[in-house]
Simulated scan of single mutants.
Amino acid sequence: MLLRLPALLSWGLRCGSAAAPQRLVLKRKFSGGMEEEAKRKAGYMAVDNHVQNNQALGIGSGSTIVYAVNRIAKRVRDENLKIVCVPTSFQARQLILQHQLTLSDLDRHPELDVAIDGADEVDSDLNLIKGGGGCLTQEKIVAGCAKEFIVVADYRKDSKSLGEKWKRGVPIEVIPMAYVPVTKAIAAKFGGAAELRMAANKAGPVVTDNGNFILDWKFNNISDWKNVNVSIKMIPGVVETGLFIDMAERVYFGLEDGSVCFRDRHSH
């Protein structure tokens, strides 16, 4: 019974439910590390609710996923779970190996039970912007191979509409020789401005794990994301966009008060 108790307590509350009134009182408890605590709790709850024995898991990228992988590794040790992990990036691969989890790939496991990943922004319909860390193509491939795509985030990523809080634009992975034509085509078709992402600690552009460049498209007044996503992908030279439309089944948000809420697709 003791092993089962955390799982019974882990379901949390639907977003917007009764925990909110205590938020102001409890906020001080997490000052300084509030965001990290929110990420940790969201990551732990997602793992506790969706990871089971004999699964093939997709492991996403980014800071929130570090906590999820910590939790997976602990449960593998404590419960002797038999799982394999497919990474979405070099970072995710290293996390899997550091925690001595079983590393696999889509050649051996093309059908995944669950993929767990973070997001840069989540709108009210569970559409996502991803790719702030540059791994959008592999993240989308892995998510697309999963029966269930689960997202973990902190309260800062929750928006009514995309672009409300995330101001760095939609990441778009492009073939290097095409980045100028793609930049011009996006601006001509949809407005805004697409800029080549430059590296912080080296001269020149960011290069993805696939050897491509990334454009960050800062958009204006877009609402029909499904058609915009398809149209951008049809531009020659575009590899993938950071728009994850109708893909997430559930998003867990770690809140400022230390609680976690979740929102399901089409449940609102």
Rank of each mutant, 00 (worst) to 15 (best):
M1H: 14
R4W: 08
A7E: 11
G12P: 01
C15W: 08
G16D: 01
A19V: 10
R23I: 02
K29M: 12
K41G: 01
A42I: 05
Q52H: 15
Q55S: 00
S63W: 10
A68N: 05
V69C: 01
N70K: 14
R71C: 09
A73T: 09
Q94H: 11
H99C: 02
T102E: 14
P110M: 06
P110V: 09
A115V: 11
D120L: 06
V122H: 04
S124M: 09
G131T: 05
G131K: 08
G132W: 08
G133V: 04
L136K: 12
Q138L: 15
C145A: 15
G163Y: 09
E164F: 05
K165T: 10
W166S: 07
V174C: 02
V174Q: 11
P176W: 06
M177E: 14
K189P: 00
K189L: 00
G192Y: 03
L196M: 05
A199V: 12
A200N: 13
T208C: 12
S231A: 14
K233P: 00
M234L: 14
G237R: 10
V238C: 07
T241R: 15
G242Q: 10
A248V: 02
A248G: 06
F253K: 09
G254C: 02
E256W: 06
D257K: 07
V260G: 03
F262T: 07
H266G: 04
H266Y: 06
